[in-house]
Design a protein around this nucleic acid. Sequence first.
DNA 1: GAGTTTGAAACT
DNA 2: CAGTTTCAAACTC
Length: 641
Amino acid sequence: MNFFEVTAREKETERFGEFLQCLSGNVDDHVESDILGGTFSGEQHHELFSPQNIELQAAGAQNNKLGASFQIFPESLQRYSKESLGSLSKESVKEADQPHRGIRRHLHFGTHETASLCLPARQTDFESLVPPHDETRTISGSWQARSCSQTAKSRPSFSPPACESVRAAQNCGNRAVNSIIRSESVGSEPSKVKKLGSNLHQQEEKLMSYGIPFLSFYGEIYSHLGYEQHESQGSFSYQSSGSIQPPCDSLHLIPYEQQATLCKGTMPSSEYADIVELNQMSPERNRKKAKYTIKSEGCRRCKCKRSRCLKLYCECFAAGIYCLDTCSCENCFNKPEYEETVLDMRQVTETRNPLAFAPKVVTNATNSPANMMEKGSLMKPSSSRHKKGCNCKKSKCSKKYCECFQAGVGCCNGCRCEGCYNPYGKKPETIYRRAERWNNPSQEQQHSLLESSGDCIKAERPNQFSSTWEELAGIGHLTPPSHCLLGEVASSGSLNTRDCSKKLAGQLQQESSVLSPSGYLNWNHSPISLSPKLYGREALHELCSDSFLCDIMEDATPETPKNTCTPSTEGVKSWSPNQKWVSPPKIRSHELRSGSSQRLRSGCKFILQDLPSFPPLTPYSKSQAAIHQNDGDHKGSTGYQ
DNA sequence: GAGTTTGAAACT
DNA sequence: CAGTTTCAAACTC
């Protein structure tokens, strides 16, 4: 060991000493259960003390609230360790001896000497606790750095030493939570998850009674329950190796600094200015002014109290954005510091509902300007639809309780609302008669034209797209008759897609599965159907049905300008809901370029419109890589494939 | 600002 | 999958 190493180590030891001193000297008697106690993980130690991170974190953590949590932490810990975690300590010791279990070891503070918080006393210990850097953050590395730098810019007054500690506390809590959520949600046998979830819930209550946020210990408890499967995921990386695969592309979060930008795009500039200002104000001022922000249109912030902003109840979480200081939420985990937690919870949520983070509004991209209507500063296509439809019983779809109304779109047949009086378009009272449509398209055209001047049709053009996204998702199995393979069609040239469509029409009349429950033909453009895996016969089937549908649409909507919908040149590239629009699957280009495919180019593109819209967290290339990897590894698994 | 209503999400 | 509970936003007073 050379001189520099010795010096560095001494400095680290000294720093750690100061750290402990700080811990023991600032224990606050007033334990606030709503403030997260930091839990310390080895990774955090590393992050805290490694030279490259000290500066970053010193710059990043400047939140008084976290400082408070840091102070209360030891006492909470002590109580917990004595009364609650005693039974776990033996296992903890065992596991601590095993290599590559960083996060578990880091969480053992509660079971041993609380004062030391299981912090290693020397740098070598830090190193031993830390997994190889490359494994730690497959997604978030640069992201967190950006978050920190962003925070640093907005809150320049925090002193670096305190910041280190605070950041440590903050991150340690994060790691624990990440461990929890991963354990709770990913790659586990459902039955085990259930059982464990139940146990954990009991632990939660117990922990809460000690004034300790349960999540801080969830991971610890969980990790002691023998979930080896999670081990394989690596303690720190976001890699789902279990049976449940996320629709990876939707696992996007919006970088903190981008959120204001996002708001800007969907709200009056004055309000945007307020948001920006809010982000630069002190927390106290933020809270005072938060109410205004919450009440503002366009960039609402949440007020969650019990969901920890990790469920769809939370508007921010549901929108794929982090909560900001302007939110009035409590126990919020939807923050960059808990990035992995958030990602994991998104994964859980999407496991439950693959379209959970899909934009709420589906828009037909072929809307002509005349087909658009203005609402505030936003142009919303009148044929936009809520992805799932509403279920209103009392609000008559004329209040913001109604998701359709709130989104500024009309109700459609996918809605299960009662007494609909949606000003953007009432739910049609009667369902179009498909048989009539098929049998007499010209009549249908007339019908369409007639209705286009009426209330309903203004919002309801059922022949253009699916009633609901759920339905879309459910028709991935749609398989047009095998004789209608485009390959045959294209190569022979004897049957163009229109012919194919007409042939199909006859069959589809008898194939009720093709029709949505509402009686409308679904577009086969669900995210599921847009998978890159759709090649060969499947893709041909898809294309065939697409062309058919396009034909039908053209037939039914003669006013729609042709070629207004450019073909998807990137194919799969645009399948992600978070990328806001879905295009027809990329069929082999030579097929598309054939004369018969010309029709395919019109009217088939749909925009997944969410307001406000948010760009993905992960760079596009990364998303694509994830997509491809996911596609290769998990064909047929849940998600947008 | 507190209390109520509402419907989506989550849970059983 | 239907019924129930939980949750947070919207709404009312």
